[in-house]
Design a protein around this nucleic acid. Structure first.
Lengths: 349, 349
DNA sequence: ATGAATATTGCATTCGAAGTCATTCAGGGT
DNA sequence: ACCCTGAATGACTTCGAATGCAATATTCAT
């Protein structure tokens, strides 16, 4: 009749293979001869526990190798201390992921990783995310407005990393793509007089590419250059190589200044120009990129580019997310960082 | 007296801001007018549920936007469907992480990420891991024997990725470093007669570097070359560049064949030789790497290297780990894959 | 020493889903 | 109409830790 609680008596086989059963707070409690609550409190900063109790519990904790189960804790505290990070293609964001993870871990938060092969299956990724009680999510991928709305509905803070949504009230941390591209073009124009400009854009559906490309066109127009050909790429090295041929097709000849929407493609361009067209960069053609990836600074490329302030951006996005986890009422906020012009030697002078 | 269960009645404000309260199986049950058990069963494949019941429940699920809470489920099933992945430095393993994550997700398992800045704080990373009921762990980092033992004690399957421990009964999936390096040296020797060989190793404490370096020395010895200088690096591009100077110091001149413990350093070497020493690669000096990273195949480098079969290795490690999750009694197993020689154009002929 | 105020402690309940077990229901055979 | 069988369903408990509240122990002032 009266329900009998039989907490879990694994303490009997503790010495033998500590194997199998995880040590729980009940095990520790039994071992120390106190209540489970007491054990729990010993792990809660600022809880009311006497020194004697704490010592006793900690001794048992040591002896049994107990660690509080973060998952069980999250169930009741409604704080999983886990955030989701969605990246569209891991290869593009190694440093970013590294920076984010490092910072989250430093604040006791862990990262559950979600990656997209082709951006197509975002839906299924979200389905999976809803199964976890994530405290928040950082997205370095494109989401549809309805998908963004679901986060709002479910009360899960969401922040975009380097993706901006105009007119949509959602938080984001971005690098100022337009401004950066304008700096690059200004630099190009200041160093030498180029006769023909070509632009290698990213995928048509990439907002970032659009902003960078527009920035370049804008600034060129201001400088009086309006006849500019744009060919699309997909952010990869290979597409950068192919882009050169495409530019030749649409321009009739090789441009003497190529603005690429990212560093990877810029390096592809340089290699194609040098090894396929036997041209010199920067002697014959100037090339600029965007992002400031490691390889761009290697001697072989020494690419002039605009570096994203990855550390600042990572710090900002982590801070913003955790702020919103603590205070769900905070309104969306968009933060934009300026890129840093990294003058290399890929511009003719 | 009789305890009154008041399950959670949020169903009242469902229409208004679905906000705040997560939808639980109780909410669905109430909405559909069935028991919570019924809802649970509808999500368990092969459970005994009538079509009528299933339809009714699913309708409520749709209307409320319910998703089972994977965390709560894991608590009782003792299967979190989460695995930990530890990498020593994210920048070194982007493709690997991507491959692993993709494969785990395809099997309904999610990855909790742990990264090390300097391999020093492995201890604290482990402390954090013990807080999660991970089904298993993949480590692409070095662990001390005592640390490895803890996994055994706690019954958490552990598999090393590309780290081997001789004489320690622990599972691992590796690329055959020695064999690969021997292939490279054979290739070097077959293509041209080199007068002076130099080796750029990895950090002294890296087993992988040791194996690669030993493989190279071994094969060189077999070919009658015994006077070989080895200088250490740290796997980065910059250390590859520095290594050239170090080789010059210890050899008295620039070697005409340099074997690097990985591609990054090989590319650093090439750049240093070309841009600092004004030498031609492969005309004056042959350089080989190891790993088969993307950049190595770029036209600027066209590096001859041995590629790790990342996809096969990732598939193997994921399979092995999940096998051991299902069957904890499986004994440790070490799998070694052969690298694939990727002949580029960095060897003199 | 005594009562009030404060600090510790334990009990019972809760988080969300799943498993156990007993009960109920539908269908089939006679 | 009646019994039997297997399927369908619900009540209750469990996983591991945290917490409100009540019970108990200390401390302090008087």
């Amino acid at each position: 009749m009266v329900k009998k609680k039989s907490p879990n008596k694994a303490s009997s086989l503790q010495e033998a293979g500590a194997h199998r059963a995880r040590v729980t707070s009940y095990d520790v409690a039994a071992h120390a001869g106190v209540s489970q609550s007491a054990v729990s409190r010993c792990f809660k900063p600022g809880a009311s526990v006497s020194k004697k109790m704490r010592d006793r519990v900690m001794k048992a904790v040591q002896e049994l190798g107990y660690r509080p189960n973060a998952i069980a804790r999250g169930l009741i505290t409604r704080r999983s201390n886990m955030v989701g990070v969605v990246v569209s293609n891991l290869n593009f964001y190694p440093e970013v992921l590294s920076e984010l993870n490092k910072r989250f871990i430093a604040r006791g938060v862990h990262v559950l990783l979600f990656s997209l092969d082709q951006e197509s299956d975002v839906g299924s990724i979200l389905e999976q995310m809803w199964q976890y009680p994530l405290d928040g999510v950082i997205a370095a991928a494109h989401l549809a407005p309805e998908q963004i709305a679901m986060f709002e509905e479910r009360g899960v803070p969401l922040i975009f990393y380097n993706r901006s949504y105009q007119d949509v009230p959602v938080s984001s941390v971005c690098c100022d793509q337009t401004e950066g591209e304008r700096m690059l073009v200004s630099q190009l124009a200041a160093s030498s007089t180029h006769k023909l400009y070509g632009i290698v854009a990213g995928p048509k559906d990439s907002v970032v590419s659009m902003q960078r490309t527009e920035g370049a066109k804008q600034r060129l127009a201001e400088l009086g250059v309006t006849d500019v050909q744009v060919v699309p790429g997909d952010y990869t090295y290979e597409s950068g190589r192919r882009a050169v041929s495409r530019l030749v097709e649409v321009c009739g000849r090789v441009p003497d200044a190529i603005v690429c929407a990212n560093d990877m493609m810029a390096m592809g361009c340089m290699d194609e120009l040098r090894f396929k067209h036997d041209l010199d960069v920067p002697g014959d053609v100037s090339v600029v990129g965007f992002d400031g990836v490691k390889a761009a600074s290697w001697a072989s490329f020494n690419l002039t580019t605009v570096a994203q302030p990855v550390e600042s951006m990572a710090e900002a996005v982590v801070t913003m997310l955790l702020e919103r986890v603590d205070n769900p009422e905070m309104p969306p906020e968009k933060r934009t960082f300026s890129g840093v012009l990294r003058a290399g030697g890929s511009i003719r002078r």
